[in-house]
Amino acid sequence: MDNDPVAARLGAVYPELPPGERAIVRVLLDDYPFAALGSLRALAERAGVSPPTASRLFDRLGYGGFADFQAAVRDGARDRSRLHEFVAHVPGARALGAPGDAPGTRVLAGSDPVTAAGTSGARSGAEAGDGVISALARAAEDLRTGLEGTLASLSEPLLDAASAVLAEARSVWALGGPLSELAAEYLIRQLASLRPGAHRVPDSAQARARVVLELGGSDVVVAYDFRRYSPAAARFVAAARARGARLVLVTDAWESPLAAQAEVLIRLPREAAGPIAPLAHEIAVTELLLVATAARLAPARRLADLDALTQTL
């Protein structure tokens, strides 16, 4: 989606927009391109703003109205995941023995593809190798740039505030979306070594209901929420907040709809999207949160006991 000119334009102007127009952009990018293909009224209702507010956004972007904006979306939108988009830009990807190769192609470990056509296989193998090297270099540069931006955005006061919440809470419950749940799982696995009462939010509705039933003002939910934002995470957070639980939110540059409810908001910069997904950046944030929390808890005795018990079990 980042290669789509309309989506890129929406992301670029987002920081400069007033709140109502930001809400429209969040809806558009959360469900791109489909959110743009209905009526203006439906789009405004999803964003919780008036149709005139939505119209002002498209005027600001230089379109001759919502219909022109929709036409641009239809022309440029690609309904593809970041993984699909990344793979599609690797030259010679099909020369590596994937389905659809020419008859007679085979791949030998440690060698170029060999075909019945002789040296043509060697040429295609070399082209594919060049493409893979180019793709790896591009991906590495994207990761490097994104990580630098992510780390620069994490100020000491922000990490201090987040670590205070994680250290002082009676219990900590973490959850994420389809991919960001891996960062939530990592947080809990490490945090459980530092302090008691660290849990991953369970998957089933019944188990989540039992968790919410016990939550109160001394408990904390850590949510990782990135486009496309998770409706299930939003439902759990809403129920937890209704019981008084506090929220630490890790999200992207466009901000999860949960941002307004967060006591501590960690917003990754736009560059942190990564070549395929922002998981590496989420883990980097989590690492720093764990370091800051460990500094507050001084858990040396707990970790020593944990190591000793691990040896006996």
Rank of each mutant, 00 (worst) to 15 (best):
R9A: 15
P15Y: 03
P15K: 10
P15F: 03
G20A: 14
V25Y: 06
V27G: 12
L28R: 08
L37P: 04
L37V: 05
L37D: 07
A42I: 01
R56Y: 10
F58M: 06
F58I: 04
R60D: 08
G64P: 01
G65R: 04
G65D: 05
A67R: 12
Q70D: 08
A71N: 11
D75N: 14
D79T: 13
R80Q: 14
R82P: 13
L83F: 10
H84E: 15
H84W: 05
E85G: 15
H89I: 00
G92W: 02
A95F: 10
A98P: 00
R106Q: 12
V107W: 02
S111K: 15
D112H: 13
A116D: 07
A117W: 00
T119D: 13
G125E: 02
A126I: 00
A126T: 06
E127K: 13
R138T: 12
A139S: 13
A139L: 03
D142H: 07
D142E: 13
D142A: 15
E148R: 13
S155V: 06
P157R: 13
L158G: 09
A164G: 15
L166Q: 07
E168H: 14
R170V: 11
R170S: 15
G177K: 12
P178V: 13
A183P: 03
E185I: 07
G197C: 03
H199M: 05
R200Y: 02
P202S: 10
A205S: 14
A205C: 01
Y224A: 03
D225I: 03
Y229K: 06
A233N: 12
A234E: 09
R235L: 13
A238T: 14
A245Q: 04
A245N: 04
L247D: 05
T251R: 06
D252Y: 00
W254H: 12
P257H: 05
A259C: 10
A260R: 15
A260F: 00
Q261G: 14
V264T: 13
L265W: 04
I266R: 09
L268M: 07
R270H: 09
R270G: 12
P275I: 01
P275R: 04
P278S: 15
L279D: 09
H281E: 01
A284I: 01
V285Q: 02
T286E: 05
A294M: 05
L297S: 13
A298W: 02
L303Y: 06
D305C: 06
D307R: 14
A308M: 04
A308W: 00
T310N: 06
Q311H: 14
Q311F: 07
